[in-house]
Every structure is written in C-alpha cells, then in structure tokens.
Amino acid sequence: MTLSLDHAIGTALGSYSPRPGFAAELLEALRRGSAVHMYGTSASGSSRTRWLLAGSLAGVAGAASAAYGVMRLQRRGRAA
C-alpha cells in the first residue's frame, strides 16, 4: 500500500457513486411529495404556521416516500 492510510481510505470509499438516473428519479419523487405542500401559503414566520407547514409536509413526504419504496420494490421484482 503505497499511499498513506487516510488517503487510501478516502480514495477507496470515494469511488462509490449513485447509478445514472437515480438522482433524477429521486428528485422527481421528492417534487411530487412536495407538490401538495407548496400550495402558495406564505410563510408568515410565526412558529405555529411553520410547525403546521412542517407537519403537513411530513405527512405528504412520508406518503410519497412510501410510494417511492413500493415503486422500487415492484421494479426489483420485475428485474428478478
């Protein structure tokens, strides 16, 4: 091992990268998850509004995340 240990670790682990298409696929799923949330409500800055906004988005994003997972499982099933 000619390189320093830290460099060797960084270089070895740094070669992981997402498959082509993954970034766009996930971004689209995130966009769909956020679509209901972005209903034009102006962020008033009051903590109550912020928490309501976060709460509603958490529900939507949770559902979208679950849907994304199901979609992925179906695709894996087809590929198998």
Partner: peptide, 22 residues
C-alpha cells in the same frame, strides 16, 4: 448493497424535505 443505499438515501432526502422548516 446499492439498492439499500438508494432506499436509505431516498429516506434521508424525504426527511430533509419534510423537516426543512426545522
């Protein structure tokens, strides 16, 4: 594996989106 990494990455960004206000 790659598939689990994708699922976990998706979870991270869905959580980041849903918690953006926090």
């Amino acid at each position: 594996d790659d598939a689990t990494a994708e699922d976990l990455t998706a979870q991270v960004f869905f959580k980041a989106l849903s918690s953006a206000a926090t």
